[in-house]
């Protein structure tokens, strides 16, 4: 389910959800369904620093026309995996140029997540966003 979830589907899902408890439970469901990174990918160079839990993130260029990026990430904390599902829905399957134009803050706010994330967790989330952007910049430079 999380595999090809789109951000619009997420908006719809979250719209039907009530308070934070329900949103949190849904994030947990997303987390459990997150595609797994192979253990070989859980290595230091793929680690996102600034998160309280361990997070590994990799990007793969897909031979679409134009080429798009797919992000796969895992944490050892399940709620973080739920947030990762939201992030990958937001950023995956887009061109690097599009990725760099996305404003995740508005999206998190619209999903009602922003308010429920402690500053520490928010920092962790934005560390992941930074890594996504960095990988997008690298992909854009490599392909040009």
């Amino acid at each position: 389910m999380a595999d090809d979830l789109t951000i619009d589907e997420l908006y719809e899902e979250f719209e039907d959800l009530g308070d934070w408890d329900e949103r949190c439970d849904y994030l947990i469901d997303l987390g459990f369904n997150l595609p797994q990174l192979p253990d070989e990918a859980k290595i230091d160079p793929n680690m996102v620093h600034g998160c309280q839990s361990n997070v590994w993130l990799v990007a793969e260029m897909k031979p679409t026309e134009p080429p798009t990026l797919e992000f796969i990430a895992n944490s050892d904390a399940i709620i973080v995996n739920g947030l990762i599902a939201v992030l990958t829905a937001l950023f995956s399957h887009q061109t690097p140029e599009r990725i760099l134009m996305i404003e995740p803050q508005e999206v998190f706010a619209r999903l009602g997540l922003e308010r429920h994330l402690s500053p520490q967790r928010r920092n962790g989330l934005y560390s992941m966003v930074d890594r996504v952007r960095q990988l997008a910049v690298e992909a854009a430079t490599n392909s040009s």
Partner: peptide, 9 residues
């Protein structure tokens, strides 16, 4: 169970 998940729950 990750401690972060436990604390949040």
């Amino acid at each position: 169970a990750h401690p972060e998940d436990l604390a949040q729950l």
